[in-house]
Design a protein around this nucleic acid. Structure first.
Lengths: 222, 222
DNA sequence: TGCGCGTTCGTACAATGTACGATTTCACTG
DNA sequence: CAGTGAAATCGTACATTGTACGAACGCGCA
């Protein structure tokens, strides 16, 4: 009785910025950004809403910090490695993390204050390219290109209709409705002959574009 | 006196879904998504909040419709034109629209119910590629690649630090702070030797990547 | 025992989306 | 012209959110 009335040390291990951030990640991964409120966060932490404000100045700052945590999870390229392999590894890692934390993509826009992990990530990428012999100009081009592709691919993946649906039916039904209208014949043709084939996975498209981009960059590097 | 007391026909031209959507666009372009509330929208229209709900079922539906309006503004490719020129024109148009309505980028994720203009857009792109001789598989690859690049580039543009800043100082100052820490040498080197050079405009990076992608696709098409 | 500071929380308020139903406006009929 | 019914507009009210403000708590140290 007395123990449950005073859940101090053992049951509530003290708050910290790390605990706040990781709880926020859990909530966002589970229910999206709309599920992440100061109150839901406090509940997840076993405290009261106003307590989290001791570690985070505002919800905006919380979101900025969350984006930085996502970047922290992305593998860094090794500046001394072979640049193509390093870029490929980084790109795959970034895509995977952004898929897992797809709520983060919408945050990239509107947040213009990158955190330390984000800056470190960018720095390592630029360094890797420069050391591989890219000129400053080509490095800038390559960087914009690769990152655009990675972010854009993640964005498309996040907004795909067939995301968590298990059966083909779930996906095919709206397509059938489209077919009935006859307004989008090219989409219907692509869907029936390609997208809806068994075993199709949009994520597999990633490799093709990445190869094409890295090939083109290598050609221009020389 | 009587005229101002009853501002009926002339001063308030009647509501409509189109007027609601275009007013919402104006507000979002002016103050971002956070400035767009049902109340601000009603004020812009000269009505009361609950009146807009006659034309829009919910704010979510409003946002879905807004995304579709943005797609309406993007130039469609001509399925009978030369595919490279058509794709290039469309890509530039899309980038420009997404820059103008940069709040729309964050909406692409999380909205999984495309409107008619969006569907039409996708359909025309697929049609153009198929007619140019791309196989179904290569069409899917090309489509994912080009769109990823366009969306991702727009996303990066929107989150750029130097956006509305006029002077170099505004941009250079945080860079100087970075330089002082010594933690991000590659970024500092790129900034001083390239990004901060007079006349630099990130939008110019778009062409390089687009060319590289279209080149690579043409090579694989044959 | 009391002090002081770092941490937690209770209360309160303004802004927002929107349910529900009342009210107004308007084309048309008798 | 008065009346009627549907289409369009709005008033009120409530739940949810971020968060300002200051009080309460806990704990090491005098």
């Amino acid at each position: 009785m007395t123990a449950s009335a005073r859940p101090s040390a053992s049951t509530r291990p003290r708050l910290s910025k790390e605990r706040v951030l990781s709880a926020a990640m859990v909530i966002a991964d589970r229910g999206g950004l709309s599920g992440l409120t100061i109150r839901s966060l406090a509940k997840e932490l076993g405290t009261k809403p106003m307590s989290v404000y001791y570690y985070v100045a505002s919800k905006d700052e919380l979101l900025d910090a969350l984006v930085d945590v996502v970047f922290e999870e992305i593998e860094l390229p090794d500046p001394d490695g072979e640049w193509r392999e390093e870029m490929r590894r980084r790109a795959h890692s970034a895509r995977a993390r952004l898929k897992q934390h797809c709520w983060a993509i919408g945050l990239l826009e509107s947040r213009a204050s990158p955190g330390p992990a984000t800056l470190r990530h960018h720095d390592r990428v630029l360094d890797c390219l420069r050391r591989a012999g890219f000129s400053a100009k080509l490095t800038a081009h390559a960087y914009a290109l690769i990152d655009s592709y990675v972010y854009g691919f993640a964005l498309q993946e996040a907004s795909l209709p067939f995301e968590g649906s298990d059966t083909v039916e779930e996906v095919a039904e709206p397509i059938m409705a489209l077919m009935a209208t006859g307004e989008y014949p090219a989409m219907v043709e692509m869907a029936t002959t390609y997208y809806l084939q068994p075993g199709y996975d949009f994520a597999d498209e990633f490799e093709f574009g990445l190869d094409l981009i890295l090939d083109g960059l290598e050609r221009r590097r020389r």
